[in-house]
Design a protein around this nucleic acid. Structure first.
Lengths: 102, 102
DNA sequence: AACGTATATAATCAAATGGTTATATAGGAG
DNA sequence: CTCCTATATAACCATTTGATTATATACGTT
């Protein structure tokens, strides 16, 4: 495995808020608006975390109208997979907002 | 697995110089003096990287006179193990210095 | 005891990181 | 077209990180 990709993925994983995002994503797609509630940080902050995960090849997105649904990529690298395996799935982060389109 | 430990270990892993240290350690014990040559950074910088790995429970040390030999801990967590597995073992970093006591 | 070597710690600094607010972009509803 | 909502980007700022130099500690040698 390319050591530069490894470093990039590890940097993307090494943040507690991003680990929480992965806990949420473990059980399926989640839209950005729900993440904002879960993490208790601003929407732009969430957007920047998701970008970091996306650029590391860990998550991918799907547009649904004005919303975006994020999910884990299909083929995770062994390192990312081992991190996801260790995380407890957090189902509390999905479809809680009144207007969530999930 | 404790999410705080996970975060701490991931932060310890998410640095290219520390990944190089682990590449060296994959094939066995290495003393600090050799690391300095390999990474091309100062001795205190190496010492601080090693401390971070030690405090994350990834490496341990053994005193040999004035030297210290570092090695991977016996029971790595699944995440750390998967990172080590992905790294190519770098044998060029051992016992190269004239006065290395390895 | 005095000196030299190996490693660790302290002090300092520049760069990277993660947050905020403000603004841009894009799509759906009226 | 205009307005509202969802998301992304830009600009900015405080904190953290990783390097350096200087100093402390510990051990071996003379």
């Amino acid at each position: 495995m390319d050591i530069q990709l490894m470093d990039k993925q590890l940097k993307a994983l090494a943040d507690s808020n991003r680990l929480k995002l992965l806990s949420c994503l473990k059980s399926g797609e989640v839209c950005v608006c729900d993440f904002v509630e879960v993490l208790g940080i601003s929407q732009p902050a969430v957007s920047q975390h998701l970008r970091k995960l996306r650029e590391a090849g860990i998550v991918t997105e799907r547009k649904v109208g004005t919303w975006k649904h994020y999910r884990l990529v299909d083929e995770l690298t062994p390192i990312v997979q081992s991190v996801v395996d260790e995380l407890e799935s957090d189902s509390a982060c999905r479809c809680n907002s009144v207007n969530a389109p999930c």
